[in-house]
Design a protein around this nucleic acid. Structure first.
Lengths: 340, 340
DNA sequence: CTGAAAGCGCTTACAG
DNA sequence: CTGAAAGCGCTTACAG
């Protein structure tokens, strides 16, 4: 084997010597093996194995002007995400899906404009091969900049108003809402309220749309007093339910646009002396871990967060490889527990 | 200004021309400004501003053999961390503290041996300037490898058995335990039990030690039946409390080594017909967000997770700059709520 | 204090 | 299919 000291890692030059070919040929094997004879390829691969060679990414990036790493980019006040249990699942899933391709994940938080500028500069400087964009609110300024700079971007959730320019992976919010509201109707509920997400988020828009559609299809007029806005926080759910009890004490079901808000809704209902589900059914959305801990256990729509992350990575790698932007919509699933 | 098209970003060469100096001088300014006349330095800095130059990290890393990025490395079955609310605080804090220095954070999860190998290779290949090691269990195989490879490492929490070779930042577990147990004694409790963390974690060892010491100092013999092991999970707290009620129904206080376990303890006590805090006081450790949501609200020791992350980054940067490993112990603070 | 030059490890036309 | 060569943007002894 190698006669010299084991200090510095082998380079493409060592591999070339070991394989009896030129450095150019080694590089060609490394980059897809085009225009290389099978015999040369075999020799190179064997040499790579023998020497323990691994490509120097810095040298490669210096030439190509791009990096193989991927950014996981948060572009909102981070509190929201870091409170959200789904966020962890997503981050972990993306890290592992990328690791399977030996691609490092860079975590970046762009909560304000200076941060956004700094990060834009970093990304457009070629330090990142693509971006997993996690942001639920529309009108995201980062998205446009990155896309214009030619950076492959995949969004998590449908980017309202930008869905034409971005690849994205999202849950089927509207269909999920339809299924849940249908469930409430089938189980005999007649005064069905909803607590919505913010109107500039896909979950806020689509889940509400599904609610409206389903009521209409069942010939149940939508009473606007039963539509109360929330902001996905637990406390906003609590406030919404309190408001609801004032506006329409005869409410017998609440379709809530997120589990976290649903927990708040249950707390407020309890305080208002309502039993769940006997007096009021409560249904959430997301199937977050907390849904299991609540009492009664929360009936909810499951969003496949694990698949979400693997699909995001798959679509991003496809984009990086040159494919056109595409949208992936993942179905949701009714998880019936005790609250509805 | 520049006469050519704005396509490719300016290089050190552009700056040199603009400043009327050689590329070597520009590089010297970039790297600390040693051996550069004030006049040259000024000219270079002005040129940098004018051209909008930013260093190409790939080229720099290719030369120096190291990177300025930092890894945030998890080395255990990730579930534990991703369930832990403190983890989020830590991750976010580190990301932001590093961002302030314009240093990217790479998230890596090494849950099994193949992953550990892959990541070790990546890190020792110079793709990372240092490592923030997050792992509570002792005997971490990564730590030793990295240290031996000369990678600056800072651990979160005292690395049992490896504290000599690693820099680390930790909460003062023992002191915190002493304060809490003292509080329980001062408020009249006499049969004080404890639910511990795993014996191979600093929190498991130190918080138990503080418990024992404090009882002893107050002339209260430690009854080993009152020491029940847990694993930091909520359910282990539940099981521990149930066991405790069997072993010693006259227990009037439980010092629990984590908030999550404390929540489990409260659930089990409730099921056993005990009132908290009237019959049994319950005290946690960590001051995690969940401590606020419990009913009664949990009395606990606050760990300064936000400072933890900024200290970890500070110490790591110092290590990278050549300083010797150091330990930082952060004080904890008694947060008195309703449960004790 | 400063410039000219070598070189980091790789990729990619270019010529054969 | 293959090798020789140029070059990516930077740092760092080396002379002066």
């Amino acid at each position: 084997m190698s006669s010299t000291g084991r200090r510095r890692p082998p380079t493409i030059h060592d591999v070339a010597r070991e394989a009896g070919v030129s450095r150019g040929t080694v590089s060609r094997v490394l980059n897809g093996g085009h225009n290389v004879s099978p015999a040369s390829a075999d020799a190179v691969n064997a040499a790579i194995r023998r020497t323990g060679y691994v490509v120097n990414r810095h040298a490669r990036s210096l030439i190509t002007g791009r990096s193989d790493s991927v950014a996981f980019l948060l572009t909102e006040p981070q509190e929201r995400f870091f409170e959200d249990p789904n966020f962890n699942v997503l981050l972990r899933g993306c890290t592992q899906a990328l690791a399977a391709h030996d691609i490092p994940l860079l975590l970046m938080i762009a909560g304000n404009e200076p941060e956004r500028r700094r990060i834009s500069r970093f990304i457009t400087a070629g330090h990142v091969g693509g971006v997993l964009l996690v942001s639920s609110h529309s009108g995201n300024p980062m998205a446009e900049r990155l896309v214009k700079a030619g950076i492959p971007v995949v969004a998590c959730g449908k980017p309202l108003g930008q869905s034409r320019m971005l690849a994205y992976v999202a849950a089927d919010d509207r269909d999920g809402a339809r299924e849940m509201v249908g469930h409430l109707i089938r189980t005999g509920r007649r005064r069905i309220a909803t607590v919505t997400g913010p109107p500039d988020t896909p979950g806020g828009v689509e889940r509400l749309a599904g609610y409206r559609e389903t009521l209409a299809e069942h010939g149940m007029p939508v009473d606007e007093r039963l539509v109360v806005p929330g902001d996905y926080s637990r406390s906003s759910g609590e406030a919404a339910a309190a408001e609801l009890m004032r506006r329409a004490p005869d409410t017998d079901a609440v379709f809530v646009a997120s589990d976290l808000m649903a927990l708040g809704v249950m707390t407020a209902l309890e305080q208002a002396g309502r039993r769940v589900p006997e007096d009021v059914a409560v249904a959430g959305f997301d199937d977050s871990p907390a849904a299991l801990d609540s009492r009664p256990a929360l009936t909810t729509m499951r969003v496949q967060w694990d698949r979400m992350s693997s699909e995001m990575v798959r679509v991003l790698l496809a984009r990086i490889a040159g494919e056109e932007p595409s949208a992936v919509i993942l179905p949701t699933e009714l998880v019936r527990r005790d609250s509805a």
